[in-house]
Design a protein around this nucleic acid. Structure first.
Lengths: 131, 131
DNA sequence: ACTTGGGCTTCCAGTCGCTGGAAGGTCAAG
DNA sequence: CTTGACCTTCCAGCGACTGGAAGCCCAAGT
């Protein structure tokens, strides 16, 4: 199967598949006589795995780790869980940061009447000289 | 005042100040005879404004808009509020996305016993062939 | 007078994870 | 035999910096 078909079946764009190959996330695909990449159903499964992991926000590095564990029949599930829990922790930190920003902005926008006058607590806060 | 001092007072690194100048976010600073950038207290205030806006997650483009409105005495606070509300909406979308991922991962990690056995619902989910 | 150490300058490259586009080869159908 | 849809490689750019090299400037200490 050509790269376009593999892309359609895996949900990873052809461009991105080539990129993943170039950085070594997935092994280089075989080639036809004409030099076209040829994919097996198995390789498409790997791409789907990568796609799902990426869509859960795992970094490409994490995905490499997860792929390695996936292929390792003698893995310890604890290793997988550790990667996932680290990721959850990072997500929770990010959410907390965004929520703090969100609350600040909501407060500022509530206090800004938002009409055609120049007075604006948002700008005043950003411009605050004291600290 | 030299760039290092301006960096210390504004909380924006010297490197980043030069970068902001290079992309036109802030006007080019004056120069001493030796070619060193020279900053006034006013310019440091501008840098602090930028720093605060960036720390609230506004994009550099948004900051350019906010700076323009800040300098415009005849601005309408509605324009400022619009930028802020757009940003809040983007943050809320991001939080919702992260939270959905978080819930999925929490569920998966709860179901993974995390011991030295290979069985792992996390990998099984990522590898799912159906759908 | 000279050295030392810090600060300043520019410019290029790298980060992360792609994505777009140019230039050109291949293939199947009409 | 042409069209158009595929495929190939390679280079460049996104956002927002950050690191590092190479070289100039300046103030303080000996």
């Amino acid at each position: 199967m050509n790269i376009g078909e593999a892309a359609r079946r895996s949900g990873v764009s052809a461009k991105t598949i080539r990129y993943y190959e170039s950085i070594g996330l997935i092994p280089a695909a075989g080639r036809t006589n004409a030099g076209y990449r040829a994919y097996t159903a198995n390789e498409v499964e790997t791409l789907r795995f990568v796609q799902r992991a990426r869509s859960l926000g795992f970094s490409v590095d994490d995905v490499a780790g997860l792929l390695g564990l996936w292929r390792d029949r003698s893995r310890a599930s604890a290793d997988v869980k550790a990667i996932a829990l680290n990721h959850v922790a990072a997500i929770e930190r990010k959410i907390a940061e965004l929520d703090s920003i969100r609350r600040t902005l909501i407060d500022l926008t509530n206090r800004c009447c938002g009409d055609d006058h120049p007075d604006c607590p948002i700008l005043e806060t950003l411009a605050q000289t004291d600290r």
